[in-house]
Design a protein around this nucleic acid. Structure first.
Lengths: 192, 192
DNA sequence: CCTAGTTTCTAGGCAACGTCTAGTTCGAGA
DNA sequence: TCTCGAACTAGACGTTGCCTAGAAACTAGG
């Protein structure tokens, strides 16, 4: 019978995983540091060694979310197999799927904190937008975009995705309608 | 010297106004029922007569938000003076301005509660989307829209606005960039 | 191997909050 | 005028985030 070691050794990662799960099941109101500690089998003060604040935990969660989304987008871009239109579509679908399965986390990611975001979070969100910008740039060179200014188009694409995700996440439209909207939007933005 | 009456008489409205103000200044984390009661000069249990829950207060706030936005949109539609493009633009600008000044409230409005929303809230959000749908319909008859299915176009327009508002509200883009994005988006959707 | 220093975790305490309940005050209708 | 329900008070309970002192365990440098 192995006895519980004093040092957990992996607490930070465990807390983040559990927090993400809780966020998925019960939303942000269900997320409490003490409850997280309880589930991890540590004392209520233990999380403080890894997250000075509740907000600091939320920031770390948002950062992970951005990185996961950026990974998806970069993977799509890296797969040169399909055409540009298909790649835009794949990105948008990833985005909406994320919005469906992790609505509360997406909220967290796009809720402006008072003042400024910590460095890691800012970098992670930058990764996502840079990846989108990259695809836009390549598409511009390929001449398949219906607009001129790449930066503004990048913002517009991000806005459309974020908007669809927001409506789906708020249950205002179904995930299927979300997919239809993606097709509509991409048809307006990209010709192939 | 008039003595403080036992019955406040207007407590519900006062609480809502103060809550909206607090939301504007400190975000949702700064919103507490007890603090609201303190500012209103009533006991900490008084709000319970009007809002059984904290969530019930938030729902009421979201409902007011939707109604205010719907009022704006309906007012724009009612003013037949300008062309359709200008009216779409005016609506979108109202939307983004709302997102800037009441970011936390907009978050509240588009955050899916677990389960279903109360009747009043659902009706209020329906008003907003119906108003937008109305303008879309009229524009379709006038033949100034670049897409076919009115319902999907309504959703797309809503998604674009919500997306721009979301990015602005999250401070990811400036309000000025938001206005530029509106022009870009409307150019794609409407010709005149 | 051992020891000093640092990180991780425990344990206890504090103020604030949401919620519940019993009882009080007021106003409006029979 | 009486009654009854709505609005409000006051006190309590459990939970939370945050703080602090100190114990435990890992990590280097000798």
């Amino acid at each position: 019978m192995t006895q519980k070691p004093f040092h957990h050794g992996n607490l930070r990662a465990v807390l983040l995983d559990q927090a993400e799960q809780t966020l998925r099941e019960g939303g942000i109101d269900a997320l409490s540091l003490r409850e997280l500690a309880r589930k991890a089998g540590v004392s209520h003060g233990a999380p403080r060694s890894h997250f000075i604040d509740r907000q600091s935990l939320l920031d770390a969660l948002a950062e992970r979310g951005f990185n996961r989304l950026a990974d998806d987008v970069e993977a799509v871009i890296a797969s040169d197999a399909e055409g540009y239109k298909q790649r835009f579509r794949a990105i948008a679908i990833s985005y909406v799927r994320f919005a469906v399965t992790d609505a509360a986390l997406l909220d967290l990611m796009f809720t402006a904190k008072n003042g400024d975001a910590p460095e890691g979070l800012h970098a992670a969100s930058g990764r996502l937008f840079a990846a989108i910008g990259d695809l836009i740039e390549r598409s511009t060179e390929a001449g398949v975009l219906k607009a001129q200014d790449p930066y503004r188009l990048q913002l517009l694409f991000a806005a459309v995705m974020q908007g669809i995700a927001s409506l789906v996440s708020a249950r205002r439209i179904s995930a299927e309608d979300g997919d239809s909207l993606i097709d509509d939007a991409i048809s307006l933005l990209v010709h192939e």
